[in-house]
Amino acid sequence: MVKGKVTIGKVLIFILLLVLGLAAILPLYWMVATAIQHPTLTMQFPPEWIPSNPTLNNFRSFFTRPHVWNWTLNSIVVATSVTVLQVFLAALAGYTFAKKRFFGDQFLFWLYVGSMMVPDQVTLIPLYLLMSKLGFLDSYKGLILPGLAGPFGVFLMKQHMSTLPSELLDAARIDGCGEWGIFQRVVLPLSKPGIAVLAIFTFVGQWNAFIWPLIVTSSSAMRTLPVGLALLQEEVPMQFALLMAGATYAAIPMVIVFLSFQRYFLEGVTVGALKG
């Protein structure tokens, strides 16, 4: 199978792929098209594939809804803090599992890996009760803390850091570097690609997280964007132009993140063998 030769068969396959690809992102296109359509025109037959008279009014009315800026801020705060803290915790623990032998290491690592098989939904109820006992319901603490507990990051970092040459660490040790110094000055810089993958996946995952933020928050001002949108949809059912404007607004940051860090996404899927 020689690559690079252009044949009629390959051109046809290419066209077929383009059609399939378009079909896959058609719903996203339809979201944007509805978002810039006049609300009254969305309720008419036949629909316009390309809005003849686009408007930004739907975005305007979306932003006049209460708490939209709070939702945005909450999403940014939660996704950013979980990402930063998770990367730090996971890098430290992953490095330890990858490069250090100590009493109980096998058992502890097994505990982390085994936990990856536990569906998150199992911890929902006890986590909720725990948060209520700690007084963290409906707060940033409640939104952020469970995001730091997942075992996946540690596993990913361990897999990545196992590939670092141990000789380099030994050399640093001989040069008189302390344990913390080795981690900070040798391990972290060498692990940048792995850290990037973990950071991106954590950020996107947190930005899009739904069930936990839905449960742990109860004031409108504490909602994250996806939860705010889902509840807005209950409040103003059928106002699709407005809802699609909100959906577009919430989707755009992630599409930008994806287009800028595409490589890491595709790499991350293979490295971590992520779900779905």
Binding site: L129, S132, L137, D138, S218, S219, L231, E234, E235
Partner: peptide, 16 residues
């Protein structure tokens, strides 16, 4: 408190 989340919010507050 919005009607949609009222019951949830009060239940959470009582629990806490």
């Amino acid at each position: 408190v919005t009607n949609a989340g009222y019951q949830q919010k009060i239940a959470a507050a009582i629990l806490a």
